[in-house]
Write a protein that binds this DNA or RNA. Structure first.
Length: 273
DNA sequence: AGTACGTCCTGATCGC
DNA sequence: TGCGATCAGGACGTAC
C-alpha cells in the first residue's frame, strides 16, 4: 500500500526513466467508469496530448506532474502502481490508464495499473490547487517538531486517526502511524491533547525515522522484477508484523488490534500507554 | 471546525 | 474442490 516512502520512490523512478522533459502524445483510458464515490477518478486526460512535463513534485501521497500548462495529479490509492514500459512491452493486468510519451526520439509508456480502482488521475490548474487541503509533507524539512506538537495538541481525538488526517500532516498511512506510535510507546487510543509536549516532540521524530528508514530500504532493494518502488518483503521489515498472533518486538507479548474508522491498528498493550 | 462513519473496489484468505 | 463470507484500506461525502 503506497504511503509516503513508496510514493517518493515512485517519483524518483519516474524521474530516472526520463519522464521529466517528455511530451504526452496520447492517453488511453479504460472504458469502465471509475467509482463515483471514494477516491477513484480519472478526468482531464483529454487535455494532455502536446503537453510537456516540466517537473515531478510530491506532497504526502500525492504526485504532481507539472506541465507546461496545468498540472496532472496522480494518486495510487491502495493498489495503484505505475510502470514505465517500452513500446512493445505488454500492459499489466488491471491497467486503467496508458500514457504514451515521447522524449526526444524515444517513445515509451507510463502505465497505471490498479486492481481496486481507487487510484486517481486528475488535471488541476496549478500546484496550489492540487496540494490545497493537504497539510505539510511529513518529511518537509521546514516542519519542526514544535509546530507538529502545537498542531496536534489542539485536537481531542485519539492520536491514531489524527496521524492519518492528510490535512494535518500529509503522507502518513496506517502502517507508518502504527510504527511511529510503537517507537515512542504511545497508545493509539490516547487523546492528542492528553499527550505531553515531550512525547509529541518524540513522536514527531519517530514519524520521520519510520518514513526515512522505509524510504532508504526501498531505495536499496528493488524487487525481483526490478521495480524500484514496491518491495515485496517490506512488511516483514516493519517492527510490527501485521498478522494475528504476532508479538511485540520489545515485550515479546502478543500484539493487540483495535479499529479506528475501519482501519486496523496493531499495538502493544504493555509498552504503549 | 472538528469528529464519526459509510462507501467505493476486488484479490486473497478462511470456514464449511 | 468449490463456494460464500470476510478482510484489507485512502480519501471523500454526509451528518451531527
Amino acid at each position: 500500500m503506497p504511503e509516503l516512502p513508496e510514493v517518493e520512490s515512485l517519483r524518483r523512478y519516474l524521474v530516472r526513466e526520463g519522464v521529466v522533459g517528455s511530451v504526452f502524445e496520447r492517453v488511453d483510458v479504460e472504458e469502465k467508469p471509475s467509482p463515483d464515490k471514494g477516491t477513484g477518478a480519472i478526468a482531464g486526460t483529454e487535455l494532455l496530448p502536446g503537453r510537456r512535463v516540466m517537473s515531478l513534485e510530491r506532497r504526502g501521497k500525492q504526485i504532481a506532474v507539472v506541465l507546461d500548462e496545468g498540472v496532472l495529479g496522480l494518486h495510487m490509492g491502495m493498489t495503484g502502481r505505475i510502470d514505465v514500459l517500452a513500446p512493445d512491452e505488454p500492459i499489466p493486468r488491471f491497467t486503467r490508464v496508458e500514457f504514451h510519451l515521447k522524449n526526444r526520439d524515444s517513445h515509451f509508456r507510463m502505465v497505471l495499473a490498479d486492481p481496486r480502482r481507487w487510484g486517481m488521475v486528475r488535471r488541476f490548474e496549478s500546484l496550489e490547487s492540487i496540494f490545497s487541503g493537504l497539510g505539510p509533507d511529513a518529511l518537509d524539512p521546514n516542519l519542526t517538531a514544535e509546530q507538529f506538537a502545537e498542531a496536534v495538541s489542539r485536537r481531542t481525538s485519539p492520536i491514531k486517526p489524527l496521524l492519518l488526517d492528510q490535512s494535518l500532516i500529509a503522507g502518513i498511512g496506517n502502517i507508518y502511524a502504527d510504527e511511529a506510535l510503537h517507537r515512542v510507546k504511545i497508545s493509539p487510543s490516547r487523546r492528542a491533547n492528553r499527550i505531553s509536549r515531550k512525547h509529541l516532540i518524540a513522536l514527531s521524530g519517530a514519524i520521520r525515522e519510520s518514513l526515512e528508514h522505509a524510504l532508504e530500504f526501498i531505495q536499496s532493494h528493488p524487487d525481483e522484477q526490478g521495480r524500484p518502488y514496491i518491495v515485496d518483503a517490506l512488511d516483514d521489515r516493519m517492527r510490527l508484523v501485521r498478522r494475528p498472533g504476532s508479538f511485540c518486538p520489545r515485550c515479546e507479548i502478543p500484539l493487540r488490534t483495535l479499529k479506528f474508522g475501519g482501519r486496523t491498528t496493531y499495538f502493544c498493550r504493555n509498552c504503549q500507554r
